[in-house]
Design a protein around this nucleic acid. Structure first.
Lengths: 174, 174
DNA sequence: CAAGTTTGAGAACGGTCGTTCTTGACCGGG
DNA sequence: CCCGGTCAAGAACGACCGTTCTCAAACTTG
């Protein structure tokens, strides 16, 4: 009974994730979301409860649909070189772990629920590196940090190391 | 002539840098700054012109007093292992490159002047790695990304790799 | 001591923030 | 067919945003 919903909830969450990834949490207003998602204000609050609720949903989706699949794919990479190459290629193809990165810097420290989600994403990357690169768990975290750091440089738009440089680094590490 | 200033400008900029590093640019209100710095609203605008002006001054000071000295110290490190150990130790001792990291993620993409300052900091780190670790310039950027990624994990408060793990990684790389 | 100038104190500005409310359009079940 | 409930549309809310203004206090200079 009642009038049926006129918007796709999953698509709305996806659009919200993109906005949050680019402009950050505080930099994205509810007006921006209403405009960008094409969803009415009231519906947004009816479905997600608050701006923070929508942010958590977007981050959750970002993990499930982008970060965890990327981590799963990286697990199957043949050695560290292939892993780094694949990771860099994923970064070039889109925002990749952009929302994860933004959440880690902007919100993880002050919002425990965001911190838990970010921790989940980072742990998945650690695990992927450990499996694919054959490194002990202790060094996998350092390599995962490398992946994140590369993503950060790419995001800042300042021209980080080239893919060739990453490959050369991978050969050096083994 | 005129009434003398009742606050230390350099100390105010330092306090502002800490606030911006922890809460981000958009997450820090002018009221927060007025309270945290103990400087009156009017004086703040008289001296720095705007919130953004104060932010740029804080970032500039962060570079001059923390990032560039850290980079200079890292240049003198004996090999990659010593460099990574020193970098990790610096991270434990305080906010270290916290504002640089925050600025890179939150503002560098949308504010060209911030982008230039962030680029200056990253370039200094690249240069330090290149000198100390003896790696070619191409791979130095990747290692600098590792340093930043480690800092990011520490900042998120999620317990990144231990210093021992970083040392083990350094031995592996050479 | 008086004139002149800059600071500190705080009220006030218009605008935007996240959130809520009111109203009318819509659609399924009896 | 119309009634009950869910939706979209948008005005409206108080709070807070960054910024500006007024005015008295405090100090230097002649």
């Amino acid at each position: 009974m009642g009038r049926p919903r006129a918007f796709d909830e999953e698509q709305a969450v996806r659009a919200a994730a993109e906005l949050f990834a680019v402009r950050g949490y505080e930099g994205t207003s509810v007006d921006d979301l209403v405009t960008g998602l094409g969803v009415h204000r009231g519906s947004l609050y009816k479905v997600f409860g608050s701006k923070r609720g929508l942010y958590l949903a977007a981050l959750r989706r970002h993990l499930d649909e982008e970060v965890l699949p990327l981590a799963a794919a990286l697990r199957e990479a043949d050695g560290l070189g292939a892993l780094l190459a694949q990771a860099v290629a994923a970064f070039d193809g889109g925002p990749a772990a952009g929302l994860l990165l933004s959440a880690a810097v902007e919100r993880a420290g002050s919002d425990p629920e965001v911190g838990a989600l970010v921790g989940e994403g980072l742990a998945a990357l650690d695990d992927a590196v450990e499996r694919a690169a054959g490194t002990p768990a202790s060094t996998a975290g350092v390599l995962a940090a490398t992946v994140l750091g590369l993503r950060l440089r790419a995001r800042a738009g300042l021209g980080g190391p080239s893919p060739d440089a990453v490959l050369a680094f991978a050969e050096r590490v083994g």
